[in-house]
Amino acid sequence: MTAADPQLPVVVVMGVSGSGKSTVGLLLAQRLGVPYAEADDFHPAENIAKMSAGHPLDDADRAPWLDAIGAWIKARDGRGGVVSCSALRRRYRDRLRADAPDLFFVHLDGPLELISSRLAARMEHFMPPGLLRSQFDALEPLEADENGTVVSIEGGPQAIAERAYEALPL
């Protein structure tokens, strides 16, 4: 497929912090030949400050962030794109899907211990490892009626991205 193909999907690579959304999302976008957007770049400064201080975001904090991501998704509809976004709760995914009903979610899934060790090794990111448990507690896995797939984070980034690619509705 090429970027000129009108059937390219818009994909949200979702999961808890440290699951590999940014790395896998970028690799997947490169494989598809479409733009990649990092959801963290859509956060207002207040959200980053709150998380940096060790406080989880609430739904009011997330609303403008999700709307900004949704606007990017809508602009890419029919032309393809990949965006990383935690999208932990069904209502967040529904909000993203509001203007893009064919949106496809790739849920990067793995055990708390593995993700925790990845977060501990990660440098220069505002998300403190102490908030990981709250993300697992908030996570609502994809439901049967949602357009998407679950991909294990076992193995290296290239292998994970390849499994995600193979699961896309191309």
Rank of each mutant, 00 (worst) to 15 (best):
Arg31His: 11
Leu32Cys: 07
Val34Lys: 04
Pro35Val: 05
Glu38Phe: 08
Glu38Gly: 07
Ala39Gln: 03
Asp40His: 07
Asp40Gly: 06
Asp40Glu: 13
Asp41Ala: 15
Phe42Val: 08
His43Thr: 04
His43Leu: 08
Pro44Tyr: 10
Ala45Arg: 13
Ala45Leu: 13
Ala45Ser: 14
Glu46Trp: 09
Glu46Cys: 10
Glu46Ser: 15
Ala49Cys: 10
Lys50Phe: 08
Lys50His: 08
Met51Gly: 02
Gly54Cys: 13
Pro56Thr: 13
Pro56Gly: 12
Leu57Ala: 07
Leu57Arg: 03
Asp59Arg: 04
Asp59Leu: 04
Asp59Trp: 04
Ala60Tyr: 02
Ala60Ile: 02
Asp61Ile: 02
Asp61Ala: 00
Ala63Met: 10
Ala63Tyr: 07
Leu66His: 02
Ile69Arg: 03
Ile69Phe: 06
Gly70Glu: 00
Trp72Phe: 13
Trp72Glu: 12
Trp72Ser: 12
Trp72Pro: 05
Ile73His: 09
Ile73Tyr: 09
Lys74Glu: 15
Lys74Ile: 06
Ala75Lys: 13
Ala75Ser: 14
Arg76Ser: 14
Arg76Asp: 01
Gly78Leu: 11
Arg79Thr: 07
Gly80Tyr: 02
Gly81Leu: 01
Gly81Phe: 01
Val82Leu: 00
Val82Phe: 01
Val82Gln: 01
Val83Asp: 02
Val83Ala: 13
Val83Met: 08
Val83Lys: 01
Ser84Asn: 02
Ser86Arg: 01
Ser86His: 04
Ser86Tyr: 02
Ala87Met: 07
Ala87Asp: 07
Ala87Pro: 01
Leu88Glu: 00
Leu88His: 00
Arg90Pro: 01
Arg90Lys: 14
Arg91Ala: 12
Tyr92Leu: 03
Arg93His: 05
Arg93Asn: 05
Asp94Trp: 07
Asp94Lys: 10
Leu96Ile: 08
Ala98Trp: 05
Ala98Thr: 10
Asp99Gly: 10
Pro101Asn: 07
Phe104Gly: 00
Phe105Gln: 06
Phe105Ala: 06
Val106Pro: 00
His107Leu: 03
Leu108Ile: 07
Leu108Gly: 01
Leu108Lys: 01
Leu108Pro: 00
Leu108His: 01
Leu108Ala: 05
Asp109Ala: 14
Asp109Phe: 03
Gly110Asp: 06
Pro111His: 14
Pro111Arg: 15
Pro111Val: 14
Leu112Thr: 09
Leu112Gln: 13
Glu113Pro: 01
Leu114Arg: 13
Leu114Phe: 06
Ile115Thr: 06
Ser117Leu: 12
Ser117Glu: 15
Arg118Glu: 02
Leu119Met: 15
Leu119Ala: 06
Leu119Val: 05
Ala121Gly: 12
Ala121Asp: 12
Arg122Leu: 09
Arg122Lys: 13
Arg122Asn: 10
Met123Thr: 15
Met123Phe: 07
Met123Gly: 13
Met123Asp: 15
Glu124Gln: 14
Glu124Arg: 14
Met127Ser: 07
Met127Ile: 05
Pro128Asn: 09
Pro129Thr: 12
Pro129Asp: 11
Pro129Gln: 11
Pro129His: 11
Leu131Phe: 08
Leu132Glu: 05
Arg133Asp: 10
Ser134Glu: 08
Gln135Ser: 09
Gln135Pro: 03
Phe136Gly: 02
Phe136Val: 14
Phe136Met: 13
Phe136Tyr: 15
Asp137Ala: 14
